[in-house]
């Protein structure tokens, strides 16, 4: 979450984790015309309150509470799978077979050490697919991966490119 030199940070990220369920909502308001100031608070409270609810129920509640025309991505990671519902240009990627692939809407099985990143269009605009992939496979932690990506964006525009929003995950098995 970085305002990228803009006056306001208009995107938002909400999450709720009660092992092994992690629910994440990424909202993108930076593409909504200035002055309209979308509020994602209501959608955020759905996430914080709904950890035990079924994914489809949370999805219904989020779609009702989120400002119209907002782009958002709802994701739930459980023990062995990730479920995704994407509205708009927030793209989820996963590293599989030495490649970076877009995660489809729906359920997708996960394995130990799988690496996932979800980001706004603005975040990806100055990153190539091989760059995201290379940083994913060389990083030992999510923080290191994100730091390296931020460095790449910074090399292009010194982080003066508007709101930057992304979340990344590395799946770790308990074994």
């Amino acid at each position: 979450m970085h305002n990228g030199g803009a006056d306001n940070y208009a995107d938002n990220i909400f999450h709720n984790y009660i092992g092994p369920l992690l629910t994440v909502l990424i909202c993108c308001g930076s593409n909504i015309p200035e002055g309209e100031n979308p509020s994602f608070d209501a959608a955020g409270s759905v996430i914080s309150a709904g950890i035990k609810k079924a994914f489809d129920d949370i999805s219904d509640a989020v779609s009702k509470s989120i400002p119209a025309d907002s782009e958002y991505l709802l994701m739930r990671i459980s023990d062995k799978a990730v479920k995704i519902e994407r509205h708009g240009s927030i793209i989820p990627y996963i590293v599989k077979g030495g490649e970076l692939r877009v995660l489809p809407n729906g359920v997708f099985g996960l394995e130990n050490d799988d690496r996932i990143i979800c980001g706004s269009k603005n975040f990806y605009d100055n990153l190539s697919v091989p760059a995201i992939l290379a940083d994913a496979v060389t990083a030992m932690s999510c923080e290191e991966w994100m730091d390296n990506l931020i460095c790449r964006i910074s090399d292009s525009n010194m982080l003066s490119c508007g709101n930057l929003t992304a979340v990344n995950f590395i799946v770790r098995s308990d074994d």
């Binding site: 590293v95 077979g97 030495g98 050490d113 992939l133 030992m140």
Partner: peptide, 9 residues
């Protein structure tokens, strides 16, 4: 040492 934990295709 920076290294790839899994190879790139």
């Amino acid at each position: 040492i920076i290294y790839t934990t899994r190879p790139i295709r």
